[in-house]
């Protein structure tokens, strides 16, 4: 087995120290969270001259807080297994995505900050966070700022973070009367990144869809918000007709590539199928099947 080559290593105990280290080592600096992505890349020699900044000694970056007004805050180091049993009713879309990310042992280590921070189009938690109108809390040399999840990604592997900046957590606004779901298809059931995935969040007013949020996984250069699909749903009477119509638009809105996981054409078909299924499940209540797609 290829060993991980020696690297520089730091364990800052405050955010300020972490930012200083990130600033000092610039493009060689890598934040180490769960390591389930970074250590694989390092073993494959995809990352050279790395200096790892292990942020797990910094207190306060872990856990889920729900405020009285319904807002939810999730620390960047919160592991995916914790999110699998997120009790908040409006956050089913994030819970569903957490359950289908990788394997049990990966979910026990993988963090939400690492999932978003790697900025992969296939990151399963990014689309759900976009549909929840979440903001990423970013800390850096110039202080703190909030970035809407829908604007956090510049391209594959490129989060919109400045030198010295890191994600400390996520803020999800209250989601009254909202129902969501996430579905993904992979080559195998579990332990594979998505060929395609669909996150939906419906804000209902009786049978009417007051507002809809849809975001697509692994069918574009970034996790892909789907505004045209949302427009079809907005104001419509919820039901099979509009769900089918929305699915056609979503397949059109996707910008898939062909790679070893699936062809672009197949990905479009998957988006259509997954969109109908995700909308139906979101609307009719949580899927009780133990795994999906």
């Amino acid at each position: 087995m290829q060993r991980i080559r020696p690297f520089g290593y730091h364990e800052p105990s405050t955010l300020r120290e972490a930012a200083e280290l990130l600033l000092a080592y610039r493009e060689n600096a890598r934040i180490l969270a769960g390591g389930t992505d970074l250590l694989v890349l390092m073993r494959r020699l995809k990352v050279a001259n790395a200096v790892l900044i292990n942020i797990k000694r910094i207190p306060g970056l872990e856990g889920v807080t729900r405020h009285d007004d319904g807002r939810v805050e999730i620390g960047a180091l919160t592991t995916v297994n914790i999110l699998e049993s997120l009790p908040h009713p409006g956050c089913a879309v994030l819970r569903a995505a957490s359950r289908v990310l990788g394997t049990r042992s990966v979910r026990n280590r993988a963090t939400i900050g690492g999932n978003v921070g790697r900025a992969s189009p296939a990151s399963d938690l990014s689309s759900p966070l976009i549909t929840l109108n979440a903001e990423a809390c970013v800390y850096g040399p110039l202080g703190e700022r909030l970035v809407p999840m829908s604007r956090l990604f510049l391209g594959p592997g490129r989060p919109d973070l400045g030198v010295g900046e890191l994600i400390t957590g996520f803020r999800i606004p209250a989601q009254p009367e909202a129902r969501g779901w996430y579905l993904k298809a992979g080559r195998t059931c579990g332990s594979d990144c998505a060929q395609a995935g669909v996150a939906v969040q419906l804000h209902l007013d009786g049978y009417h869809i007051r507002e809809a949020r849809v975001s697509l996984t692994a069918v574009g250069p970034t996790p892909l918000p789907a505004p045209q699909t949302e427009a079809v749903l907005r104001g419509a009477l919820a039901g099979p007709e509009v769900f089918a119509q929305a699915a056609l638009v979503a397949a059109d809105e996707a910008r898939p590539l062909t790679d070893f996981r699936a062809s672009a054409d197949y990905r479009r078909v998957l988006i259509k199928t997954l969109t109908v299924a995700a909308l139906t499940t979101a609307y009719t209540g949580e899927c009780t099947c133990s795994h999906q797609a």
Partner: peptide
């Protein structure tokens, strides 16, 4: 060595983890 096979799984504070990662 990539988290794919699970041969290296141990328990850490009671949770299964891939010791190679």
């Amino acid at each position: 060595g990539h988290g794919d096979c699970g041969a290296c799984i141990v328990l850490m504070d009671g949770h299964a983890v891939n010791a190679c990662l």
